[in-house]
Amino acid sequence: MKKKIIKIIIGYLLLIPFAILFLIPFLWSISTALKPLDQVFLFPPKWIPDPVMWDNFIIGWRSVPFGRFFLNTTIITVLAVLGTVLSSSIVAYGFARLESFDKNILFIILLSTMMLPGQVTMIPIYILFKNLGWLNTFFPLIIPSWFGGGAFNIFLFRQFFLTIPKEFDDAAKVDGAGYFDIFWEIILPLSKPVLITITIFSFIYHWNDFLNPLIYLNKMEKFTIAVGLRYFQNAYQATYINLMMAVSLIALAPVLVIFLLAQRFFIKGIVLSGLKG
């Protein structure tokens, strides 16, 4: 019994210092975001701001059109996530449930595309979208997601679909269900963990994406949050660190909220899909 208590204490004693180290960046930015400017540049620093400047969030938000950037990012992210989830799941259904002479070779091609670094295709795709007249539109950031939604997501969906017993399909077939009915009414509703996992990862990816908006959007009214933050950095960073931290925290907020709400499901999803493939 005594040995067990010591073990528990040692466990916490090891965990807590790491937790503090991992939390310091958050605490530091929150603390900075709430300080009046003259307290930002104090040495040694004060952790608790006095007075607490909630206004920093409003001033930072208004200093560049962040409302616009938020709206743009939301539009892009929602449409891209929708495309990713729908198209990758339907493709995965094909690979998991339907037979064809060329299925294996196509699946190997699918897997091997994961090896290819994005930089190789980046330039021709840029030229393609440029020729289509799509620079400074959201299409380059949305359309590719509707074409399969990424090899890795297809792979994850397929792995999960394979664990669903085929008897379910057969029973539905007897009742006269077609392939799409089976996919939509049986397979997808049974795939919630992987569905949530891919939705969230895809959301985070598109919300945080910087390189693509940087390449395709150069008019301010089209900026996403990521590019808008970069713009803000160039304009104000040198002086208004407190505002900088405030707007960074606003930009992170949606991801933080979604992560905290859904983490139970999708940590399970990661563990389930894991590395068994």
Binding site: F18, A19, F22, L23, P25, W28, S29, I204, W207, N208, D209, F210, I225, A226, V227, L229, R230, Q233, Q237, M244, M245, S248, L249, A251, L252, V255, L256, F259, L260, Q263, I267
Partner: peptide, 17 residues
Amino acid sequence: TIFYLPSVISGVAVALL
């Protein structure tokens, strides 16, 4: 959660931080 969270919030905001 504390250890995992930072890895999902990559991007410009984190770089600025």
